[in-house]
């Protein structure tokens, strides 16, 4: 009844159970955090706007953005993945979501930032619908925990209307 193997087995089972319980509690504690992130974005310039050879519209732009996502961080947060997406409708597509820029925020100190940059990923439509098109800019984030459940949310920010002519 009290052999070495039985004791080792009991100890292992107990410690794994405790570890699992602690992971579950750490993940559950994230639910008590009610974050209040803020962000503003401004499109500065459409420096290229053209129809590609295959007929799809392509836009290149510069923008600046300031955001404070520090309240997303809890003790169970490993990193926050943040990205800026352009979202719009076309006659063919009910939804087009195009990630323009993204970044990994490894710590709370990095989560308050100001950036001025160009789109990191190509902004290409499926077709030629972008002239005079309104699109929304949305900041999405994905909270990646040290353990447990992942969280995601977004803020819709100001939209922008593309010019009528290619440039």
């Amino acid at each position: 009844m009290h052999s070495v193997m039985l004791r080792a087995n009991a100890l292992l089972t107990f410690s794994v159970t405790i570890l699992a319980l602690m992971c579950a509690m750490a993940s559950l504690s994230d639910n008590f955090n009610s974050p209040s992130p803020t962000a503003q974005v401004q499109v500065l310039n459409i420096y290229r706007f053209q129809k590609k050879r295959n007929g799809d519209d392509e836009v290149s732009l510069t923008f600046n953005m300031s955001a404070n996502l520090q309240s997303l961080f809890t003790w169970n947060t490993k990193q926050v993945f943040v990205f800026l997406a352009a979202e719009y409708e076309t006659p063919k597509n009910a939804l087009n979501q195009i990630s323009l820029w993204d970044s990994i925020l490894p710590s709370k100190e990095d989560a308050k930032f100001w950036i001025q940059t160009t789109n990191k990923y190509s902004f290409v439509d499926q077709g030629s619908n972008l002239q005079n098109k309104d699109f929304n800019l949305t900041l999405h984030w994905h909270v990646m925990p040290k353990t447990g459940k992942m969280f995601a949310d977004k803020i819709a920010m100001t939209g922008f209307r593309l010019p009528e002519t290619y440039r």
Binding site: F81, F83, P91, K92, N93, A94, L95, N96, Q97, I98, S99, D102, Y121, Q126, H142
Partner: peptide, 16 residues
């Protein structure tokens, strides 16, 4: 991997 672009068709609901 992470999804970075989505195009969802209006009539069929298919996605790229």
């Amino acid at each position: 991997h992470r999804v970075i672009k989505v195009h969802e068709r209006r009539d069929t609901g298919e996605v790229d």
